[in-house]
Nucleic acid binder design. Sequence first.
DNA 1: GATGAATGAGCCTTCATTCAT
DNA 2: GATGAATGAAGGCTCATTCAT
Lengths: 190, 190, 190, 190
Amino acid sequence: MRVKDDIKRDAIIGATISLVNEIGFAASSVSKIAKRADVSPATIYIYFKNKEDLLVSTYVNIKVSMANIILREFDHTMPVRDAIFLAGKRLYTYINGHSELFAFAEQFGNSPYTDLVDKAEIEAPFKPMYELIQHGIEQKIIKDVPFELLFAHLYLPIFNLVNPRLHPNFEVTPEIVETSMHMAWDAIKL
Amino acid sequence: MRVKDDIKRDAIIGATISLVNEIGFAASSVSKIAKRADVSPATIYIYFKNKEDLLVSTYVNIKVSMANIILREFDHTMPVRDAIFLAGKRLYTYINGHSELFAFAEQFGNSPYTDLVDKAEIEAPFKPMYELIQHGIEQKIIKDVPFELLFAHLYLPIFNLVNPRLHPNFEVTPEIVETSMHMAWDAIKL
Amino acid sequence: MRVKDDIKRDAIIGATISLVNEIGFAASSVSKIAKRADVSPATIYIYFKNKEDLLVSTYVNIKVSMANIILREFDHTMPVRDAIFLAGKRLYTYINGHSELFAFAEQFGNSPYTDLVDKAEIEAPFKPMYELIQHGIEQKIIKDVPFELLFAHLYLPIFNLVNPRLHPNFEVTPEIVETSMHMAWDAIKL
Amino acid sequence: MRVKDDIKRDAIIGATISLVNEIGFAASSVSKIAKRADVSPATIYIYFKNKEDLLVSTYVNIKVSMANIILREFDHTMPVRDAIFLAGKRLYTYINGHSELFAFAEQFGNSPYTDLVDKAEIEAPFKPMYELIQHGIEQKIIKDVPFELLFAHLYLPIFNLVNPRLHPNFEVTPEIVETSMHMAWDAIKL
DNA sequence: GATGAATGAGCCTTCATTCAT
DNA sequence: GATGAATGAAGGCTCATTCAT
C-alpha cells in the first residue's frame, strides 16, 4: 500500500494558510484548498477528520512552533527585564520571517473556530514565560496584578500593530518594537 | 412615511447583531437574518445593497455610536491624564451596557469584511481623542511616539481582556479597568 | 492456503449482512462494510468484482441455503398436504433461527439489485417443491392454476407477516403459522 | 410575489415517481429529480423539507389515493363476498391504470424509508375494509383469525404477482385476478 | 494476497440574490 | 415598499473504486 505522506500533509496545511490569507477565512472552502494543494478534496479527509480539524490543527501547529521559537533557550537566571525584551525581539523576528503563519493565526484567533481549540495545549509552551513573570513579581520588580493584565500590556500592542489588516498604513520596524517594549516595561514594572 | 421604514431597518440590523453573536459570522445567512427580523429576504435588499453592505453598515453604526458615547462632552481644558482615564471608564461602561454591540464589532473587526470599511469614517469621531493626545505630547506629558503606539498601549489591553471568546475565565471589573488604565498611563507618560 | 481465504470471505459477507440490517441498504457503503469485517476496502475487491457482486453473492448464498434447509430430505412419497405443511413449518423455523439472513434477503429482494440476480440459480433448489405441486395437480388434489398463483397463496402471507418492518406490532407464533397454512391449503386445494 | 405553484409541486412528484421507477430508489438523487422536473434543486426544498420528506409525501399521496379509488362508494349492505371481489377487481384496475404509481409504492414500501411513514395515516382510508371484514366475521362467514392474516391472504398474492420486478415473465390478466380472488376467498371463508 | 492511500464524481443541502406579483 | 417563490452556484463530505507497495 501507499504510505501516508508528510509532504502531502504539509502541502495541504500550506495551501490552507496561503488561501486563508489571500481570500479570507469564510471563502476558503475545502475544494479550493484541495485545488491549491494539488490534491483531491477527498484526500484532505484522509489527513484530517473534517474542515474544522484541518483549520484547528493548522492553528495549533503554528502556535506551538511560535512559542518554541520565541522561548527557546530561555534562561531563568537572566534578568527579568532582559528576558522580556529578548522575547519581544524574537516575537518581531518571528512575525517578520513567518508573516503568513502569523497572519493566519491572527485571523483564526478571532474567528468562532477558536472555541474549538484546546486552550491548555496552546498555553503550555508559554509556561517559561509565566514562570519568569512570576519570578519578577516575587522580586518586586513587576507589579503584582493578574497575569492576563501583564501579558496584555506586554505584547498585545505589537501583535496588533503588526497586523496589516488592522493597520495597513503602519510599518512596524525594529525601532518601533524597541519603543513598544520600553512602553510595555514602563507599564508593568513596579 | 419615514417612521415605518426606520423601524424595519432597525429590526434588520438588530436581527443581524443578535444572530451573529449567537451563531457566529459565517453561519449568519441572509435568510436567517430575515427570519429573525420577521421580514422577507427580499426586503433586506431594499434597505441594503447586499449582504456585505448590511454587515458593514451595522459595524459602522456601532463604531460611530460607540465613539460618540465615549467622547461626548469631551473637555479640552481637562487635564490630559484625567481625560484619558475618563475615556477608559466610559469605554468599560459602554462595553458593559452594550455587550451585544461590542461583541459584534469585535467579531466583525477581525473578519475579512473589515477591508471593506471606510477607515476614515470610523476614525473621524475619535478626532477629539487624537487632539487630546497631540496636546499631551506638545506639553511634554506624553511620549513623543506614533499615535498608533500610544493608542495600542492605552486601550487594546482592555478591549482584549473584555472579550469573552479570548478570555472566557477572566472577569473584567471596574478595579481591573482602573489598574489597566494606570499601567497604560505609565506606558505612555513621559 | 484455502482456509484463510474462506474465513475472510465469510467475514465480509457476515459484515455485509449485519450492516445492511443495521443501517439499511443505501447507507451500507463498501468502506463501512470493510471496517466491520476488519478488512481493507481493497480486499473486498479481491473476493468480489464490485459492490454489486458482493451484494448479489450474499443474497444468492442466503437463498440457496434457505432452500436447502427447508427442502432437505423432502420425501416424494409423502402426502402432498403433509409435505406442504412441513415446508411451512420449516420455513418458520428457518426464519426464526436465521432472522438476520432472512431480513437481509427481504431487503434485497425488493431493491433494484434484484434485477441483477440470475433467477434460475435461485429457483433451482426449489425444484422438488415444483414437482410436488405438479404431482398434486395431476392427482386432482390441487387446483390446476399457474404455479405462481399457487406459490403466492401458499407462502407469501407468512413471508410478509414475519417481516418486522412491515408488521412491527404483529408477532408470528407457531400457531399463526399453523393457521396460515390451513388457510393457504384451503386456497390451493381443489 | 410569486405564488406557490401546485403544477410545479406535481411536476416534482411526477419526476420523482418516474425516475425512481426507471433507475431505482438509491440512484434517484435530488439533482436528477430536479433536472427531470425541469426545476432547480433548490426549488425542491421550497416544496419539501428534504429528500426524505419528498419521498414520504409522494408515497403517502399514492397510498391514500389508491385507497380512495378502490373503496369509493363502498356499500355496507352489499354481501361480504361481493364487496371483497369488487375490491379485488378495482385493485387490479387501479394497478393497470396507474402502474407507475403502484410500482413506486411497492419499491418504497420495502425500503428503509417506510419506517418514517405515519402508519396510521395510511391505514385510515382502509377503515371501511376493516369494518367489512369485521362484519363478515360476526356473521360467521369469514374465519375468526387476526385481520393481518385475512388481509395477507386476500390481496398479497395479487400485489406480488403484478410486480414486474418480481415476476418479469408473468402477466396478470383479469382472469388471473378472478382466479386469485376465488382462491383467496377459499382461504378466508369459514 | 492484502493493504491503506488516493481519487473524481457525486451526494444532499443552503447560499446570496433576483423575479413576479 | 414588500413579499415569498425561484434559482445556479457552491458548500462540506462520502462514495465506489484503483493505485502503489
